[in-house]
Design a protein around this nucleic acid. Structure first.
Length: 472
RNA sequence: GGCCUGGUGGCAGAGUGGUUAUGCAGAGGACUGCAAAUCCUUGGAUGCCGGUUCGAUUCCGACCCAGGCCUCCA
């Protein structure tokens, strides 16, 4: 099936053509591991995961690379300010290396909660210093660099004719020049490739290089690692929308002189998760992590479901109200699937119906990853009386592979919960209640039901008597 | 100042040049002693003003409003 995607480079919806038939290589700009990734960060990861799943279901062999930025780049793109990793280390009284490991572990934990398939490769910047140095050397030989004495090696963006193409703005249009720039840079958009360690303090992370002891600028890591694991040219590069102008423009500027243009065929940028009042903020306590949602009793799949109801190129406004709505919607679907699994099977999978639904669902997500439309089809499928339960179940297995919403898993767990037999004392209470009911003593019956409920079980009446179900 | 998105019912959010998805919430009903679950039915929206068109929510233009990026940020 044809895959269409919106390419930021051309600002157009394009049909995807791989560099090598049947294969796709793509790179996601991963997290800087100095703090917990919040649910907004994770939106990007879910989007990446959907891309991977759509390619996979279309028969592609996927090589997905996502980096961990564990080297301290600076808090300002002007290559000044504090080092984030060092700040994190000071905050937590850990070494920078331990800080990195701690937040990598946390990140992967949350990735798993969201059922994101792990990338094929997850390289760390600090493990690829030599590759980064090698690229800086190549750029130096090609004449793209200059030194600011006592500061570092910089990239001269005026040497790269097409600088800023991705951001839709020419060099001359960027406002950078309006700020005071006493750093010695030739152009406001120039950026560091290699920074010298300060002479007055000892950095925890620093390496030898042909230019002196120091550390790499933060853009070069993505160029170095993507090429190492995906080849000099690859198909797709994705990341948060804020990366387009600076980070990705710089990556292109670093890479194309070395490998030729176009370096990457397609670029995709994801919109942000916003709060009513704007961005998530750590200081305001609104930078929720996936683990925070779990602590509040939410299923991570409900959050994933919320995300998939919107489009990746559209900002999404998060609130607990909308998460509650998503939770209800998600649970309703799970309930219906559980009923399908419980339904008596009298027929076999209807391959004609299966194929029709399969193709319909796959085609809407293959068209620029419209997951919201796929979820509409999921509702339609549940209502479709012409498709038998077995076929529907098989289709939901496909939907789970495609969207990663773990419908079958949650439905199976729900059934298990419902089949778990109640302990004797609960059964005794239920029996008493049944007697009270038979005597039309509603007050006693309701009191007993409340007692059972308080013990963690629910009594459900039916035509044939009652069921005792463990509360989720 | 430059660039870029959007403005759709109570909420979240799709698609579409010609009956405005879907979900949640709401209302009514079936079933229930009452609940729960399920099923059925149902009310309710396209910022404002022009233009193109037989017809615009959809295309074009102006305006108003909101948000984002241009500074680390997914």
């Amino acid at each position: 099936m044809t895959i269409k995607l919106y390419n930021t480079l051309t600002r157009r919806l394009e049909e995807f053509t791989p560099l090598q038939p049947g294969k796709v290589g793509f790179y996601t700009c991963g997290p800087t591991v100095y703090w917990d990734a919040h649910i907004g960060n994770m939106r990007t990861m879910v989007n990446s995961d959907i891309i991977k799943r759509v390619f996979t279901e279309n028969g592609y062999e996927v090589n997905h690379v996502m980096n961990f930025t564990d080297v301290g780049h600076l808090t300002s793109d002007g290559d000044t300010g504090d080092d984030k990793m060092e700040k994190g280390a000071a905050r937590e009284n850990l070494s920078v290396w331990d800080v990195a490991q701690k937040y990598i572990d946390g990140f992967l934990y949350d990735m798993d909660l969201l059922n994101n398939i792990r990338p094929t490769h997850m390289p760390r910047a600090t493990d690829h210093i030599s590759e980064q140095i090698a690229q800086v050397q190549q750029l130096e030989e090609l004449g793209y660099t200059y030194e600011i004495p006592g500061d570092g090696i910089y990239y001269d963006t005026s040497k790269f004719a097409n600088y800023g193409a991705l951001g839709g703005q020419k060099l001359s249009e960027l406002r950078g020049g309006a700020r005071i720039d006493d750093s010695g840079k030739r152009n406001s958009t120039d950026f560091a490739l290699w920074k010298y360690s300060p002479t007055d303090t000892k950095r925890q992370m620093e390496w030898d290089s042909p230019w002196g002891v120091g550390f790499p600028g933060w853009h070069i890591e993505c160029s170095a690692m993507s090429m190492k694991y995906l080849g000099q040219h690859f198909d797709l590069h994705v990341g948060g929308q804020e990366h387009a102008k600076v980070h990705h423009s710089n990556e292109i500027a670093q890479s194309e002189p070395i490998v030729g243009a176009p370096w990457v065929s397609y670029w995709m940028h994801f919109e942000w998760l916003l709060l009513k009042d704007g961005k998530m903020s750590k200081s305001a306590g609104t930078a929720y992590t996936v683990r925070n949602l779990v602590e509040r009793g939410y299923d991570p799949m409900a959050y994933r479901y919320l995300l998939l109801q919107s489009h990746y190129r559209q900002p999404l406004e998060f609130s607990f109200e909308s998460l509650d709505a998503a939770t209800n919607g998600y649970k309703n679907i799970v309930r219906k699937i559980a009923d399908l699994i419980n339904a008596e099977k009298t027929t076999n999978v209807d391959s004609e119906r299966y194929n029709a639904w399969h193709d319909k669902i796959l085609s809407v997500v293959s068209d620029n990853f419209k997951t919201a439309e796929a979820l509409v089809l999921v509702q339609d499928l549940l209502k479709d009386s012409a498709t038998n339960p077995e076929t529907k179940i098989q289709l939901f297995e496909f939907v789970d592979r495609l969207l990663g919403l773990q419908f079958i898993d949650r439905a199976t767990k729900l059934i298990a919960l419902e089949r778990e037999s109640a302990p004797a004392e609960i059964v005794a209470l239920a029996e008493s209640r049944a007697t009270a009911k038979a005597n039309r003593d509603w007050a006693t019956a309701d009191a007993l039901r409340a007692e059972i409920d308080a013990a963690g079980w629910t009594v459900l009446d039916s035509k044939d008597g009652y069921k005792i179900v463990k509360k989720a």
